[in-house]
């Protein structure tokens, strides 16, 4: 069961690492991003990046356990949407977090590539007390996005 709290230009969700939670998170995040002025397309990209990040946490940090905590914070700073995901699971070595060769057609390993394509920046940080903090940023306005980021492959 998840808990959510919305405070104007911020949203906080506390969920368990249960894949059944993902649909609810997508709905909340899309609704918040749209309320902050993002286009449907941009909000969709934030939702996809978030979903991929949560999938990685569930699969890798918590190794499939469904009852571990994940904290999700969204906030608007200047013209950017900041998304922070905090887990308390196993840390992946930083050098292991990267996109893979897309010419190698095989299942899996696409999450980080999708996240980097959908967001302007992503940054994994070791969190104090264990686990990982993932910070993802995206401009609220498409025009700002096109001007400043490297979204296109």
């Amino acid at each position: 069961m998840s808990e959510s709290e919305s405070m104007g230009s911020a949203l906080r969700l506390e969920i368990k690492s249960d894949p059944a939670e993902l649909k609810h998170v997508r709905t909340e995040v899309e609704s918040f991003a749209r309320a902050m002025g993002m286009t449907e397309e941009s909000a969709g990209k934030v939702v996809l990046a978030m979903d991929e990040a949560l999938t990685n946490i569930i699969r890798h940090a918590y190794e499939g356990a469904a009852d571990c905590p994940i904290e999700i914070d969204l906030s608007v700073r200047d013209t950017n949407l900041h998304v922070t995901l905090r887990d308390y699971g196993k840390r992946a070595p930083r050098e292991n977090i990267h996109s893979r060769d897309l010419n190698d057609v095989r299942p899996g390993g696409l999450g980080v590539h999708i996240m980097t394509q959908c967001m302007d920046s992503i940054d994994y940080q070791p969190a104090p007390g264990g686990g990982t903090k993932l910070i993802m940023i995206k401009c609220l306005r498409d025009s700002d996005n096109e001007r400043t980021n490297g979204l296109q492959p």
Binding site: R26, L48, D51, E52, T55, V105, R106, P107, G108, L110, G111, I114
Partner: peptide, 16 residues
């Protein structure tokens, strides 16, 4: 309405 990379992976497995 929505698919993530795990859904895509299922279809890649089917394709293979």
């Amino acid at each position: 309405p929505y698919m993530d990379s795990s859904g895509v992976a299922s279809l890649v497995k089917l394709l293979s």
